[in-house]
Design a protein around this nucleic acid. Structure first.
Lengths: 346, 346
DNA sequence: CTGAAAGCGCTTACAG
DNA sequence: CTGAAAGCGCTTACAG
């Protein structure tokens, strides 16, 4: 017994639910060694030569007592935790983001890091969040403010900012260019001979960071190809809204013969609206979406769309986080992330 | 100066990136008071009567120095953190789970708690995860093992287990009954006069916890109503797979006149398959889904489906977590969570 | 009104 | 091969 009568905390803890943590001291007492030895054994500390018998005893005691190391104490001592925080903007999480997070979680787990995702990043100051978590790194998906970036650096936290969208303030950062998404839609429609284009914009305010550059890309490519500016209509995800947009598109002069949509959901609404109006796709109006959601291949007609390779993006994100943590150099940027999926609608 | 020459840590920290944390000691030195006073001021500790002038000085110093409290130290001292951990099973995250998490995050933020989501719960032992985070509570979405539950209790962590699905081992726990989902599908089809039913099962192994009880509900209700057992076919999310299932359903004797699908995505595949075969919906075969995804209202014909009120579920989950944390009693279970959405397909 | 001191549970340089 | 001791940064009962 090397710690006899060590006083129990005087300070009342939370509940008084009878919760008393098993600590290294308990394991040490139980196995008749010092806390030092317990730590060495349980952490497999290199260079600590502990006899097999002692190791055995310590492990058994830890097991028997149900010892669980305190993450807080360890983080305090080491000066860092084993957590990676993903601060997710208030985006609707679909299959794309979901698999990105799944992939990242799996990959970093092999390096002993736990990925934690916080939704609705903009709800509170970002600093409140990482203060409460003290992660090794913060993945932001969009750019951090200069102030946030400074604060994280001061706290020794790696900040991985822009990853998913274009950001003019960070021209160097990797991003799946949303502008290019819009350009690709137009190039495909123009190649099929369409000259007068409509655009079906989303009404979801949460995705404005994607919506703005996609439309910009559409406008830009129209200009570059000498086409008239696209006729933009906001379309909700309903048959009625899709149908309501059609008259404006079909109006003279130069009725629209093809519509690019913000994404597949909006494109499906356009499809449904045109169907309700007995317009044929693609003969009367061609339609192209973005994302290649599962439903895209099931519509009538099947939806032509631009897909963003989740797989490549996920790998890049992982590599970027790992590089930041290891102090390595930025990973190679993936090429050919965007792919045109031609089906029947355009 | 009350802490002159306090030795800087001897132990080399991680990077040597020149990161040195600003602590209460620094703020105390800067403002010429003790760390006690700093803590009192910065935490607005009740019962601590500090002069306005001192408060002012301390706050200014903290601001100037960019002081950020150490979450690890605070957690160690207080014995608990301000984190709530959601251990998400390896489900495909769609709008339903997404809004559940958004809602929970927003609600608990008003109580000073940060919600952290970990994907792919089954990838590693759950205990590894909460050990690394030391949250106040863990939300599991499915049941915890008895061992996990014991361990969390020992560590003073609230465990909120079954929430989203049926679990026969926890008959008391709230759940949106997936069995009832299947029963509702059959009741609607039977009420429309259908007697011979098909079932389009998912092929996604990740959702087996939902798939099994839904089909069980379908079987059960068929039995109860004296209908023949449903003809079950696995259907992938593709036109081909939907079409491939049809011959078996249409075979004599008693060709199927209605198909219940695992969810809307599978139902859309069935719809597309039937369309490819020139079968009319609902005249030749009626189809009903589950979820009411956005695309459900856009298909041709529009999809009849069973929706699970996300709003009510989210509120219940919040209340359950809050009750667990405050030691309050279990919240009232929401009624009428399931709703039939009748459109054209059945 | 304010400060010195203890202690949360851990890891590790140092001394045997 | 093993242990005593220091210290991570914080909060708070206690003593002025």
């Amino acid at each position: 017994m090397m710690l006899p009568g060590r006083p129990r905390p005087r300070v009342g803890r939370s509940g008084g639910t009878g919760v008393s943590r098993v600590t290294t001291a308990d394991v040490a007492r139980e196995s008749g060694v010092s806390r030092t030895t317990v730590s060495y054994v349980l952490n497999d500390t290199a260079g600590a030569a502990i006899s097999a018998a002692t190791r055995q005893r310590v492990r058994a005691a830890a097991e028997r007592l149900g010892y669980v190391p305190s993450a807080a104490a360890r983080a305090l001592r080491r000066g860092r935790s084993d957590l990676v925080l993903c601060a997710l903007p208030d985006w609707p999480v679909g299959p794309v983001i979901d698999s990105l997070l799944d992939h990242l979680t799996g990959e970093l787990a092999t390096r002993g890091l736990s990925v934690l995702v916080h939704h609705r990043r903009e709800q509170r100051p970002l600093s409140d969040l990482w203060r409460a978590v003290t992660p090794r790194a913060v993945v932001g998906f969009t750019a951090f403010s200069a102030e946030d970036e400074r604060a994280m650096q001061r706290a020794g936290i790696q900040a991985i900012g822009t990853v998913l969208d274009d950001d003019p303030r960070h021209p160097g950062a990797f991003a799946v260019s949303q502008t290019e998404v819009g350009r690709m839609q137009v190039r495909h429609l123009a190649a099929a001979g369409h000259r007068s284009l409509g655009y079906a914009q989303t009404t979801d305010p949460r995705v404005v960071d994607f919506a703005v550059p996609r439309l910009a890309g559409v406008r830009e490519e129209c200009r570059r190809l000498g086409l008239p500016a696209p006729r933009v209509r906001a379309v909700e995800v309903s048959v009625e809204s899709g149908a309501a947009a059609a008259p404006a598109w079909r109006a003279s002069p130069h009725p629209v013969t093809a519509v690019a949509a913000y994404n597949d959901e909006v494109a499906l609404a356009v499809l449904a609206g045109l169907r309700a109006l007995r317009l044929r796709v693609p003969q009367d109006v061609a339609v192209i979406g973005v994302d290649d959601v599962p439903a895209a291949r099931l519509s009538a007609p099947a939806l032509t769309t631009v897909s963003q390779s989740v797989h490549l993006q996920a790998r890049y994100l992982c590599d970027a986080v790992v590089a930041a943590l290891d102090g390595g150099s930025e990973p190679a940027r993936p090429a050919d992330v965007l792919r045109l999926v031609v089906r029947e609608s355009a």
